[in-house]
């Protein structure tokens, strides 16, 4: 019981070519920058966009196969879709919104009227049953959207940035509720997000989409430790360097040399946590193997920590304490020395 999809389509500048497999009860997060094709993928799976190549099967049933001219209309797929802006029908009340799918899928008017309130209770919305969507807060609207999508008991649940429209205050609470609902949902779930924290909190596994292709998949811990693209590295806050490894050294793409633990040959990634990057005003003494001179290119304050970007043979982000920032007087001009211990560099095949 699972979703198996191979989706190939072209939409404007985007060429989407994705293969995924998600099991029942599993939650797959789809992470990626704007324009990477995340929403397009969801729309294709829901049948709102026709695929040109590939095949979509849900629980063994073929939903779409252009080669065999099979295409189930959106209404004929057992799909629940939570849209980024929810798209609650503004002319219907909350309970009518939730009952909409039940009625459309053939339940009688009275049956739908009876079943919808159960969903509202489950979402803690029973007091808002007769409100219009316009009168709801963001968190309430999100819960109505989820209830409306889940009420017809779909086998595939598609969530498009379900938390992005919420303010920071309600986001955490709604995320916890959403996590509970997803855990009790028996079907297959795909959730689009661009927030790695959301992916880690809600999903069992994630794929990273860039330019219409899956460039990485795995658990969020795997992805966070071994990013395979500058986008992911920046999301999880790591320095990512790509190059060719040989004899304990990496020849960095675009110039520069990195000394690393030996044993990695060929095309590799090197991930370095900004905490492992030390800054000095003079040439440092001692054991660090990677030492070079650079210039401060930018300083970002993040709470009590500061991230300093240093341009040099290899561009590097270092994390220093506010105390160190002051002591080194990094705001002033002048050369800065970067040092990284070889043992702090994680190397993995590209």
């Amino acid at each position: 019981m699972s979703l198996k999809a191979s989706v190939g389509l072209r939409l404007g500048d985007l060429e989407l070519k994705v293969q995924i497999e998600v099991h029942s009860g599993e939650v797959l997060a789809v992470l990626g920058p704007n324009g990477s094709g995340k929403t397009t993928l969801l729309r294709a799976l829901a049948g709102l966009l026709a695929i040109e190549r590939g095949r979509v099967t849900l629980d063994g049933e073929v939903l779409e196969d252009p080669a065999r001219q099979i295409r189930r209309a959106p209404a004929e797929r057992s799909t629940g879709f939570v849209f980024q802006d929810y798209l609650l029908f503004p002319h219907l009340t909350v309970v009518e919104n939730v009952a909409f799918g039940l009625k459309a899928r053939g339940m009688s008017r009275s049956g739908a009227r009876a079943a919808a309130p159960d969903w509202l209770r489950a979402m803690g919305l029973e007091t808002h049953a007769n409100a219009k969507p316009g009168a709801l807060s963001g968190g309430q609207a999100q819960r109505v959207a989820l209830a409306r999508a889940l009420a017809p008991n779909p086998r595939l649940l598609l969530l498009d940035e379900p938390l992005s429209a919420l303010d920071a205050g309600t986001k955490l609470e709604v995320r916890r509720e959403l996590s509970n609902h997803l855990r009790s949902f028996q079907g297959t779930t795909l959730m689009v997000t661009h927030n790695p924290l959301e992916a880690a909190a809600l999903a069992d596994r994630l794929i990273v989409l860039e330019g219409g292709r899956v460039i990485q998949d795995g658990t969020s811990a795997e992805v966070a430790q071994h990013p395979r693209s500058p986008y992911v590295a920046e999301l999880v806050g790591l320095n990512l360097i790509r190059g060719r490894g040989s004899n304990g050294q990496i020849v960095v793409e675009g110039g520069g040399l990195l000394v690393v633990p030996s044993g990695f040959e060929g095309d590799v990634f090197a991930a370095i946590h900004p905490r492992a990057v030390a800054l000095h005003r003079g040439r440092p003494e001692g054991s660090p193997r990677n030492v070079w001179e650079g210039a401060v290119a930018g300083i970002d304050l993040e709470g009590d920590r500061t991230r300093v970007t240093v341009d040099g043979p290899v561009r590097m982000v270092a994390e220093v304490t506010t105390q160190a920032l002051k002591e080194l007087d990094l705001v002033a001009a002048g050369p800065v020395w970067v040092s990284i211990k070889a043992t702090e560099i994680q190397v993995y095949p590209a």
Binding site: G47, L48, A75, F83, G101, A104, L158
Partner: peptide, 15 residues
């Protein structure tokens, strides 16, 4: 009108 409301209706099973 926002045609995506029609998409929402379609995913809910409306012909």
């Amino acid at each position: 009108m926002n045609r995506r409301f029609e998409d929402a209706a379609a995913t809910l099973g409306a012909r």
